[in-house]
Design a protein around this nucleic acid. Structure first.
Lengths: 179, 179
DNA sequence: TCAACTGTACCGTCTGGACGGTATACTCGC
DNA sequence: GCGAGTATACCGTCCAGACGGTACAGTTGA
């Protein structure tokens, strides 16, 4: 089995995504992760520490993703937009979970988030050779996350149909083509 | 002075935007609105009722906005994207405030939100004559709200520079031009 | 007179976290 | 090879404070 720490973070994410920040109490996370409250507090001595754990996880995952954006055969723009559609990947989950915390005004989470936003914009600008185009592409991706952030509880429901996504990607091609 | 009900909703919004859902307690809202807790409960007999009040406010404001989208001289796409940049208008505030509640899994808020998303997409599609283009434009706008949702506490900081916005609008023109 | 409050006292529930205890594995001097 | 000590990984209980909400008696301006 995964380490207890990972299991706790997984379940913390899960509750944040499905039920919101308010439901993600220490008790609820402990119960979901199959440990006692005392056990949880052994691994993360405070809720703050648990949030920090999630921040670190997101930072790692998004750094990996930035590399994939740069080296995607289909092109950075297409890759970025396509993968912005919520598919419940580890990165998707970490983003949406942390987004919930940012919305509660959590400073550490907001910091992490600001950093990865910056990272992505720079990565796109470098790949696409234009800041306005990079910005437009990033905003489309952000828009997709925005929707995911709102309707993710029934993740299946709000996923774009394949055809719809391809149509959107063609709009992206049009933007980038004008570079 | 505005009616007490409006003042209460204004301050409810304000706390939601600046400090998150968790900080928006009945006590905090009452204090901010300058009424006693008993007074707040006189106007809104429960927190649920207060949320409903905010939902109704947003529904009204967004219906008005939809009309403005359709009839904007600069074109629906430009108008939609330009006004998606957070400028602390009554509509902006209502959206971001309710977004906080949706993120907490609040069903009434989620419902209202889903409805106005639908309304905007339909309005854009009607005006632009293409669903994929409407979707791309709407996503760019959503992306702008997404950013606002994250960094609105220091609203000045994250506002786009005029030049940046104009550059973005030219990307939008490019999308729509191909309609 | 009456709606629109204020102020206070209170209740049941939930929350983060402190705390003391326990089982097990490992290390180390002898 | 063995007893003592230490570190790790938990468990279960308790607590102060915050929360939404109730109840109700009193005040005030039109």
């Amino acid at each position: 089995m995964a380490s207890a720490k990972d299991r706790i973070l997984d379940n913390f994410e899960d509750i944040l995504i499905k039920e919101g920040e308010r439901a993600a109490t220490m008790d609820a996370v402990a119960a979901a992760a199959g440990v006692s409250k005392g056990g949880l507090l052994y691994h993360f001595p405070s809720k703050e520490a648990m949030v920090e754990g999630l921040c670190n996880r997101l930072a790692e995952l998004s750094a990996e993703d930035a590399e994939r954006i740069s080296s995607a055969p289909e092109g950075a723009a297409r890759y970025y937009v396509r993968t912005s559609n919520y598919v419940d990947s580890p990165l998707d989950r970490a983003i949406v979970a942390l987004a919930r915390l940012v919305q509660q005004g959590h400073p550490a989470a907001a910091n992490t988030f600001a950093q990865i936003q910056e990272l992505w914009l720079e990565t796109l600008e470098l790949a696409l050779g234009s800041r306005p185009v990079a910005q437009a592409v990033k905003l489309i991706g952000d828009g997709l996350y925005f929707s995911a952030t709102f309707f993710s509880p029934d993740a299946q429901q709000n996923q774009m149909a394949d055809g719809e996504m391809e149509a959107l990607l063609q709009q992206v091609d049009a933007l980038v083509g004008r570079g």
